[in-house]
């Protein structure tokens, strides 16, 4: 190459770089669309509901008078339903994921199971509601209770937990596994001492992302018959007498945040719209807090696990 070619080369570079610029702009606009839409919704809700965000809003039951209505039964209901969801989906999902990755031999049956699990993640949530109505509410006789709702949402996020568990396990390098097996560890010892601890951050992240999806779910909860007007709290899980733990609350009727919100938005009075906006703001904050936890886990727990 001689120096006379340099202008030509510069021209080529300039032309090639034009596409860099075009993509950078297009990508930024796409990003902006998502961020701005969310921000607009969030700010709108905060603005509309701001004056309703008083301490009483969290400690009052719903009321016919908008100014006295609160979200006490809704946030307690959401919390308890999420508890049942986590307690049912996490052990089942993690166990299934570990089994599929570590124990199951790779054959046609496990391939079919794998496809099924992936497809389950795409089933509309209302279908889970219908299933739960038949199985949990009537079949097992759990009724329109926190237990039914928690198990329904547990089913809903089960595929998410399974997929997250498998991804986390797959990211453990082969040579770490071989090191453990090479010392004479059994499959269970490898799973207990290595696979589970090293994949825990990934599993937890998946669980929380699943939960933050579940907390906003309305359709399946309505299907199984959540009530929209609840002016009582479920029985306390801790009692004064032996065995100090009570499971009465599982059978209690309930409402959750998105249903409370839905109920208020369907009222004609302007004041209830404010309540709905305030409840929506709190619900988004709950979801954001969960996602923040997931991010925190990713950064702080994962930093101890390097290969």
């Amino acid at each position: 190459m001689n120096s006379a070619d340099i202008p030509v080369i510069r021209k080529i570079i300039q032309r090639n770089k034009r596409w860099d610029l075009i993509f950078a702009i297009a990508g930024f606009l796409a990003l902006l669309l998502g961020v701005l839409t969310f921000l607009a919704l969030f700010v709108q809700m905060a603005y509309t509901g701001w004056e309703r965000l008083t301490p009483e809003f969290f400690t009052n039951f719903p009321s016919r008078r908008a100014a006295q209505a609160g979200i006490l039964s809704a946030w307690v209901g959401s919390l308890l339903v999420m508890l049942v969801t986590a307690l049912s989906a996490v052990p089942l999902g993690v166990a299934a994921g570990i089994y599929l990755e570590e124990y199951a031999s790779k054959n046609l049956v496990t391939d079919i199971i794998e496809i099924n699990v992936t497809n389950l993640a795409g089933v509309p949530s209302i279908v889970y509601g219908l299933l739960a109505l038949g199985v949990f509410v009537y079949g097992f006789g759990f009724g329109q209770s926190i237990l039914s709702a928690g198990l329904t949402l547990g089913l809903l996020i089960l595929p998410v937990v399974i997929v997250a568990t498998r991804e986390a396990i797959r990211s453990i390098p082969l040579h770490i596994r071989e090191a453990a097996y090479g010392l004479g560890a059994t499959r269970w010892q490898v799973t207990r001492d290595h696979i589970v601890p090293y994949s825990l951050p990934g599993i937890l992240t998946g669980v929380i992302i699943g939960m933050s999806r579940a907390i906003g779910e309305t359709a399946p909860i309505i299907t199984i018959g959540a009530l929209t007007f609840i002016a009582f709290l479920p029985a306390s899980p801790v009692g004064p007498e032996f065995p100090w733990l009570s499971f009465e609350w599982l059978k209690s009727g309930f409402t959750v945040m998105p249903i409370q919100m839905f109920n208020w938005t369907s009222r004609p009075e302007e004041a209830f719209q404010q309540n709905a906006a305030a409840a929506g703001f709190i619900l988004v904050l709950m979801t954001l807090a969960m996602n923040a936890t997931a991010i925190w886990i990713r950064y702080h727990v994962r930093k101890d696990i390097k290969w």
């Binding site: 390098p173 040579h175 071989e178 453990a180 004479g184 560890a185 059994t186 001492d193 290969w307």
Partner: peptide
């Protein structure tokens, strides 16, 4: 026992790495 091509300590403490073979026994 086997020592591998790429050093493959467990992401645990130095002590726990060495003790692991004894622990599983």
């Amino acid at each position: 026992g086997m020592v591998f091509q790429k050093p493959n300590p467990f992401p645990k403490s130095i002590y726990e790495n060495v003790a692991y073979g004894l622990r599983i026994r």
